[in-house]
Amino acid sequence: MSVLVDSKSRVLVQGITGREGAFHTEQMRAHGTNVVAGVSPGKGGQDANGVPIFDTVAEAVTATGADVSGIFVPPPFAADAIMESAACGIALTVCITEGIPVHDMIRARAFVERARTLLLGPNCPGLVTPGQCKVGIIPNHINIPGPVGIVGRSGTLTYEVIQGLGQAGMGQTTSVGIGGDPVLGLTFSDVLALFAADSQTRAVVMIGEIGGADEETGAEFIRSSGFDKPVVAFISGRTAPPGKRMGHAGAIISGNSGTAQSKIDALTAAGADIADTIEEVVRLVGERLGARAL
């Protein structure tokens, strides 16, 4: 089993003719993803290496039954693309685009909520259920199937953990990158709830960073929901100076909130194991899985 996407997912790519859209569509297909359609306004009727292109998401859904969308369009058009996907009833919209204005995202997120669909991202690496379906930009070769669920805010750190676990022989049910923007779709708590319900996920790795309170909310979810799978957490930015925005729009310590310590404290109180390095993440997950097997 897995969460959010699997071999039955029918994937649509918005922005399939752009540089990133074209490259990563091929990468996604190489990982076994069933990419059924592309959307690029004005290019309907063409195809991208055999994937039919449509002018609108509505047409693509009617023609192909797509139920997941990956968005690779530039920031000025990305919020519109999210809303187009949600309006067409796409169950899960994954937005990779970085740099979307906050006011655009506030509207797009409210729109998605009203359409009762799910949004992952923006400014995220997407997600992968190894060997079945990948939507986004997580490098292909590091993903192997296994019992670990991964949810991370930072894309590249999530790759580090996937790779580290894989090299130690531990694969994933699904790896989910929620993204680093201040206004985003699925949160740590949302993804933790999905892992809680997935019988094959036997341990979860949570990769957080400074800024905001999403990790604390995730910790509260672990505590209050009786989450019964081991959680190993890693927080980056422990040496970041307060008041400086560290790259991600969301990664900033303001006053006393958003510090690494507050997140580590909340997660420790919720019973999670805290790792100081990626190597320690791998070791702790191995121990927890081993202990469970006995």
């Binding site: 930072s154 590249t156 930015g237 040496t239 790259g247 100081d276 390095t277």
Partner: peptide, 17 residues
């Protein structure tokens, strides 16, 4: 220098460690 805010922050943490 790195790619991705989380990874760069972790790189700073590693250098310090």
């Amino acid at each position: 220098i790195g790619n991705g805010a989380g990874l760069v922050m972790n790189t700073l943490d590693l250098v310090k460690q």
